[in-house]
Simulated scan of single mutants.
Amino acid sequence: MKTLNVMLSLSPEACRAYYEGRAEQVHAYSTDGRRIAFPAVALRRVVTREGVNGIYCLQVSDQGRLLGIHRVANLPAS
């Protein structure tokens, strides 16, 4: 199993498109600069009323299948 950390900052309105199924994939960059895509349904596990904001750890199988997602940190203050 591999892990990837991604920074996500999505407003509640942006999350709605993912939640309602109008968008199937989330495109993001890992903290080490790789461009990744993962199924939007995974956001349902981490979305709050404020959207999705923070650094999240994606657990990925050796075959590239998303196994889990969880928040590991807040985004740094700007």
Rank of each mutant, 00 (worst) to 15 (best):
R35W: 01
E20M: 12
L67P: 00
N5G: 00
A73E: 15
Q63W: 01
A23N: 05
A23L: 15
C57K: 12
R71P: 04
L66M: 08
T3N: 06
H27G: 01
D32T: 15
A17I: 00
P12W: 10
N74R: 13
G68I: 02
G64W: 03
N5T: 12
N53T: 13
D62G: 12
A23R: 15
N5Q: 13
P39Q: 02
L43Q: 06
G68H: 11
H27V: 14
E13N: 11
A37T: 13
C15M: 13
P39D: 04
V26M: 07
G51Y: 08
L67V: 00
L75N: 14
R65F: 08
L4Q: 12
Y19W: 07
A77S: 13
A28R: 02
L58Y: 01
A73Q: 14
R49T: 09
G64L: 04
G33C: 06
E50K: 11
K2Q: 13
A40Y: 06
D32Y: 00
M1L: 08
V52C: 09
L58P: 01
S30R: 07
D32E: 15
A73W: 06
A37W: 03
R65W: 03
V60F: 09
S78N: 10
E24K: 14
I55C: 13
L43V: 06
A40G: 13
N5R: 14
I55M: 09
R35L: 11
I36K: 02
V6G: 03
D62N: 12
S9W: 00
S78G: 11
E24Q: 13
V72G: 06
P76R: 12
C57R: 15
Y56W: 05
V6F: 02
R65C: 03
V26K: 07
E50I: 00
A42V: 13
C57N: 10
A17W: 11
A14R: 11
A28P: 02
C57G: 00
A28M: 05
L75H: 05
D62L: 11
E50L: 08
T3I: 06
S78Y: 08
L10R: 05
E20Y: 04
Q63S: 15
